[in-house]
């Protein structure tokens, strides 16, 4: 069963002795439902990765970094998780994120989606959906609503959207959603 898009899975493992880009590895690409599961079932769950690691799933041709032409004007819907949630919810939320993006759950705005990223960090893990145009307000909001529903997050929980241009240039304390 062919997917609408071909997807590439990337793995990042932090090694401070090497340049950021040298730590980023393309794992594989797939474009069918069956191959998605073959990849998913044979990769380590995020909760088992060591801190500093990321998985990224991006449409083929888009590199998982702000600098890519299809990311640089974009941003991300960010879900920040507490340390306790790694044990209980992290793997589930990542899988729901993957199903949401490969299934093109955002309707006509699915073309705005570039990919999804999970960051495993000691201070707290993060999951995000990256979109290509932060100024496309209608698309961004629609994607955010659908994404929140896909994750089953309670309505009162607020998730934020951050433009990559801000993430790249501002410190965490000045960063606005």
């Amino acid at each position: 069963h062919r997917l609408q898009s071909r997807w590439a899975l990337w793995f990042f493992k932090n090694d401070r002795s090497r340049a950021w880009q040298d730590n980023l590895h393309l794992v594989t690409k797939f474009d069918t439902v069956e191959d998605f599961w073959a990849v998913y079932n044979h990769t380590q769950l995020p909760s088992k990765l060591s801190p500093g690691c990321d998985y990224s799933l991006f449409k083929d041709g888009i590199e998982p970094m702000w600098e890519d032409p299809r990311n640089k004007r974009g941003g991300r819907w960010l879900v920040s998780l507490s340390k306790q949630q790694r044990h209980m919810e992290l793997d589930h939320l990542w899988l729901e994120t993957l199903l949401c993006v490969i299934g093109e759950s955002f309707g006509e705005y699915s073309r705005e989606v570039c990919g999804a990223v999970i960051n495993i960090r000691t201070k707290g893990d993060k999951i995000a959906v990256w979109t290509q145009e932060a100024e496309n307000r209608t698309g961004v909001i629609h994607i955010g609503h659908v994404y929140k529903e896909c994750l089953g997050l309670p309505p009162k929980m607020i998730i934020g959207y951050q433009a990559h241009a801000d993430t790249a240039t501002k410190s965490n304390t000045l960063l606005k959603n």
Binding site: H1, Q4, E34, W37, A38, E104, C150
Partner: peptide, 20 residues
């Protein structure tokens, strides 16, 4: 047409043996 799949449809394939 656009290939949109909901989560239940996608989940149905998780443990399906691969065709050879």
């Amino acid at each position: 047409g656009k290939k949109q799949y909901d989560r239940e449809f996608l989940l149905d394939f998780q443990f399906m043996p691969a065709c050879i």
